[in-house]
């Protein structure tokens, strides 16, 4: 089962000040699969994820070298139109950060800044994406309420719907369940499994069991390097590297 490559990372090196955070990253991320970036805390997983849509630009002390291709477009090239590129990638953070506005406006924000203003169109989209994350029935009567009034689990699903709203083909998720209670956590996880048929998903996690439940493809990182990557069964059942083996046996957490 060979899939098309969606994102191609070539010789990526990233420094923060004098610290070498990502070292010679070379990896392909397959299309319409759920790729999990696995590894202990502080190994550079989140940084790698944020390099994919250049959110690393927000930190002036970060220096990146190398190339990341989405199709034939080099994401890291300074001339790349970054706002267009970011729209192709939905983002879900560790804990939910709803925008300081209503539930409705959270979903329409991305659409409105790209110039879609027709009320009927926006209404339809709001319902569509809220249904995608099974939130519609819970909030349909209070769309004008501030998003901060929702529970944490609902907020995280709202953030996911918001990420979907600009019609990306890639979803980036950074430990999306780490702030949630077990039930919400399970809900979000199931959503990802459902969504991976239509989106290329890259999910960072350090929860081994979660990775086993959802991953098609695994990138295992340790201290800023990719130790091993490959299809999920291969990594979980027959890891080749000693570090991967011991991580999967649960020696590092």
């Amino acid at each position: 089962m060979i899939n098309e490559t969606k994102i191609n990372i070539e010789n990526l090196n990233l420094h923060i000040g004098k610290n070498h955070i990502l070292k010679d990253i070379n990896v392909q991320i397959p299309e319409k699969k759920l790729t999990v970036i696995l590894g202990p805390s502080g190994c550079g997983k989140t940084t790698l994820l944020k390099s994919l849509n250049r959110l690393t630009d927000l930190y002036p002390e970060v220096k990146t070298q190398g190339r990341i291709f989405n199709g034939d477009e080099d994401i890291l090239h300074p001339k790349t139109e970054i706002t267009e590129l970011r729209k192709k990638m939905g983002l879900l953070a560790q804990s939910p950060y709803p925008l300081p506005m209503s539930i409705y406006d959270n979903i329409t924000y991305g659409l409105r800044i790209s110039g879609r203003r027709k009320k009927r169109f926006l209404n339809k989209r709001v319902e569509y994406y809220l249904r995608q994350v099974s939130l519609w029935d819970e909030v349909k009567d209070r769309l004008k309420d501030p998003a901060s009034a929702l529970s944490i689990g609902q907020q995280q699903r709202l953030c996911l719907a918001r990420g979907l709203s600009v019609d990306p083909d890639i979803l980036l998720a950074d430990e999306p369940t780490s702030a949630l209670d077990p039930i919400s956590s399970r809900e979000v996880e199931e959503l990802f499994v459902k969504l991976k048929q239509r989106y290329t998903i890259v999910m960072v996690t350090h929860i081994l069991r979660q990775a086993k439940r959802v991953a098609d493809y695994v990138i295992f990182m340790y201290l800023g390097e990719i130790i091993e990557h490959g299809p999920a069964e291969q990594i979980f059942e027959h890891p080749r590297n000693e570090i991967t083996k011991s991580y999967i046996k649960g020696i590092y957490s």
């Binding site: 959110l55 953070a93 950060y97 925008l99 924000y109 800044i113 918001r162």
Partner: peptide, 27 residues
């Protein structure tokens, strides 16, 4: 204001100024 809020807005295709005007200043 947490930087994740900027990240959320930017990842939806907003420019930096749009993010400041519509999200950060609101917050």
């Amino acid at each position: 204001i947490p930087i994740e809020l900027s990240e959320a807005s930017l990842s939806l295709g907003a420019t930096k100024w749009e993010t400041i005007k519509k999200v950060l200043t609101r917050k």
